[in-house]
Amino acid sequence: MLLILCPYCQSRRAELEFRNVGAAHISRPSDPQTTTDAQWGEFLYQRDNPKGRIAERWLHIHGCGRYFNAIRDTISDVFVTTYKSGEPPPAMPSEAKP
């Protein structure tokens, strides 16, 4: 079971306190009515599925109830960092090659 640092609680807690709620940094178009079907479809359904680091939203549902963002590595399942909603994704050092 993973340990996840909630950026609001500042506490590393067990995975079962959290829910994954999908990709982060997908902003809702400010005026949806002006979008084309393709643009709206993109907003609704198209998500990156990278091998490696991914920005995700998590909900501390059995804790403080806050939504926050996390950078997770999809290969190792390791949380690289977590940060508060509204904050920009931290600059990531590019993956160090061994």
Binding site: R57, R66, G86
Partner: peptide, 13 residues
């Protein structure tokens, strides 16, 4: 409840 919270916290803070 979670959906409302999502919009309140993240979409329209």
């Amino acid at each position: 409840f979670a959906m409302f919270e999502d919009y309140l916290q993240a979409e329209w803070p």
